[in-house]
Amino acid sequence: MVRMAEQAISSNREDTLVSLGLGSCIGLALFDQDAGVAGLSHIVLPESNARGAGTPAKFADTAVPHLIDSVVKAGANRARLKAVLCGGAHMFASPTSSSSLLQIGDRNATQTLAALKASRIPVRAQDTGGSSGRSVEVRVATCEVFVRSVGQPPRNL
């Protein structure tokens, strides 16, 4: 279970890494399928502005390098890493409000993609935006990523 601002890494084939109820937050999975190592980060905000030291997984710009280092330490080959990201929804649709609350999801997704690009990690699949919350499951054995939303069948990304 990966809660807000946390990350988890596993090389145990039996494990499934899970984040439940992502709204504007991002679930970022990184894996090296050949080495059988996967990691999942639960990102809350786009930019750390130098506040990310204690909780790197909380901010997109610090979460990405932190997750890369962690999966590499667990045995992944950096050159084989691939990413899947989901979340970043607009939970409360409002055509009139310009509250920054409503833009966090988009900014989280954009910043996460930018950080992956800067680290030259290819994105295998992406399911972001929209107005539905998501729960995500990463199966370590197969590096499959399943996403569920309320009232919809699970999707395999």
């Binding site: 807000m4 709204g23 609350l101 107005s131 539905s132 729960s135």
Partner: peptide, 27 residues
């Protein structure tokens, strides 16, 4: 109050953006 907004979804998903606004400088 600003005008109220409505969503129908998982509890965690509707609350995480609200929490995000409160925790920029604190954990």
């Amino acid at each position: 109050p600003a005008p109220p907004l409505l969503a129908v979804d998982m509890l965690g998903a509707v609350v995480d953006g609200v929490l995000a606004m409160a925790v920029a400088d604190t954990d």
